[in-house]
Amino acid sequence: MPPGAAPTPVRPAPTPQPLGAVARRRGPRTELLAPFVLVAPAVLIIVGLRLWPLVLGINFSFTGDGDRNGMPVGLDNYVTLLGDPLFRTALRNVGLLVLLLPVAVAIPGLLATFIYLRTPGHRVYRAVYFFPAVLSPVIVGAIFNLLLAYDGPFNEVLAVVGLGPVDWLGDPDVAIFAVAGVHVWATFGMALVVFLAGFANLDPSLLDAARVDGASLPQSIRHVIVPGLTRTIQFVFVTTMIGLLTSMFGLLFVMTGGGPEASTYLPEYYIWVQQGQFNQPALASAASTALFLIMLLVGLAQIGVLRRAGREG
């Protein structure tokens, strides 16, 4: 038998080829599916528990309350909102809080600077400053209700230095500042920790160099510390803003109940009153939607600022 005439097919059957093709085809498919499977839980949670309720809530804000329960009413709720002096006060207070934001950021920043510069007793201060951050707003509110009472210790101290009593929580021009001040007191510990973390990344030789060059403390802060902490400061701005707009409910509830003369209303509190006290869930939904839009705008603006700063950095 001539060797070349062997009829036996020595070439391996081409069976592995399709197998290989299948394997190659399956490979990319699983690879294609895998990311979807992996992100599915997160996506489902976000869609099911966040976005879908959000859509329902927005949808609900276009329906009526009471006799018109469930009926589409178009933009009626939003018109009501704009006409409601309470809601306008709430929005004005949001603006006020935004204006107070630099103060709320400067306080932990300055205190963190002093700790960083090893002011005598800085270890004690670090613990003391953080302490209020672990208290619940209800406890903080109750404490300051006592401290700020008309016949409370604050006014007694004022009387010692010869100043008339201030009705901290009863004077409509003062109350919102009192509550915001307490909020800052109660929450600045967290921002302080963030600042300290930022300081950890600051090159101490820069400060030493400034000192050698004869820079004063304000000059060091202005020309060395602030530029070195830009990113940290921006982060604290964003988180403090969110805290001011969304976490004051507990304090308001305990300290002023929105009063006096409705001067301390914030959108959150307004939503709660409309839903819980006046049984107007659809109007409350409209207010929630408005608050959501405000937060969205503020958040987007801040992300924009951060991104630009990041590019510069």
Binding site: N59, N69, G70
Partner: peptide, 17 residues
């Protein structure tokens, strides 16, 4: 898509019914 979805579903029903 989100806006369209909202617009379509807006006012069509209520969680209260």
């Amino acid at each position: 898509v989100l806006v369209l979805g909202l617009a379509l579903s807006a006012g069509c029903g209520s969680a209260g019914v």
